[in-house]
Design a binder for these strands. Structure first.
Lengths: 155, 155
DNA sequence: CTAATATAGTTTCATATGTAACTAATATTG
DNA sequence: CAATATTAGTTACATATGAAACTATATTAG
């Protein structure tokens, strides 16, 4: 594998962690606006709904695993969604500590409206990339994500 | 340009904004730990120092432009850095509203220690990518960043 | 069966963050 | 030059967030 010359000086604007952070914040900020303005949802609430839309009847802990949210964030998002009538909670029959969560009819309606908006935003974001580039990007991000896994021995 | 088939269902784990956010948070979290444990610096404080290390004698507003931080965040980071003796402030001769900021000797020493650590962390992160892939990644992120620019008309 | 341990989820508290209001200085306009 | 508007930076307030403590239930060990 050919090597890039090792950098010895730091230029912030070329520093990958910084670039990732700025890009991610810009993208998330715009999307958060969409969800919030149209539906009054936070990004976390939307993530919870997105998972429930794919997987009905899972628990808060499972949502946390799928979304990379910690349990406090999940708990808060869920409680907001219950207040706003988007999500319903019922006790688990087997385990009294768990709650089974699902979208309400209202929640499902909102979900069905948001999905095309979210996909449209994603499409607009990547539209300047060719199909090959889009696949390349997905592949590279997979590799990075694998390297950066939170539980790996710290660098 | 060949087209990818348009998605009609949303799978959170394939959704680019989500993936960007998780990846960025994972990477930033690890790096933040490094800065904090070794030097007691927050990510924003480190960003400010990184800019001052490249560009001595600039103002808080300029730092904000370079780092994509808002002025309140810059103000707070700078005031912490002054308290901890990493940064010095002197009044601008031409404009009494501005302060000229620079690293102190102590700050420069810390900067010189952090730079190799930061570059090492970046290298570890991208080491599974070939040189060509690293260039590809930089290119793709440039394109995305351009598309997502904060001031573009909202999608 | 009982005691100790672990897990699911919530609440509390301390800190971080963003928005808006504010202060001080400069620039503009008439 | 006086009045007004703009800019640099800070402070105040309200909200968001994460870590740790807590409650309730379930599991394991003896």
């Amino acid at each position: 594998m050919p090597e890039l010359p090792s950098k010895t000086t730091l230029r912030l604007r070329d520093f990958l962690p910084y670039r990732l952070s700025v890009l991610s914040n810009t993208v998330s900020g715009k999307i958060a606006n969409l969800y919030d303005r149209e539906f009054g949802l936070s990004i976390w609430q939307w993530r919870v709904m997105a998972v429930l839309g794919e997987n009905a009847g899972i628990t808060a802990t499972e949502i946390g695993q799928v979304t990379a949210m910690d349990k406090v964030a999940v708990s808060r998002a869920v409680s907001g969604l219950i207040d706003s009538g988007h999500v319903a909670r019922k006790a688990s029959a087997e385990d009294g500590r768990r709650s089974i969560l699902s979208l309400t009819t209202k929640g499902k309606g909102v979900y069905d409206k948001i999905v095309p908006i979210a996909l449209g935003a994603e499409r607009d974001l990547v539209e300047t990339l060719s199909a090959a580039e889009q696949e390349q990007l997905a592949r590279l991000m997979d590799k990075l994500a694998k390297t950066a896994e939170p539980d790996r021995p710290l660098w």
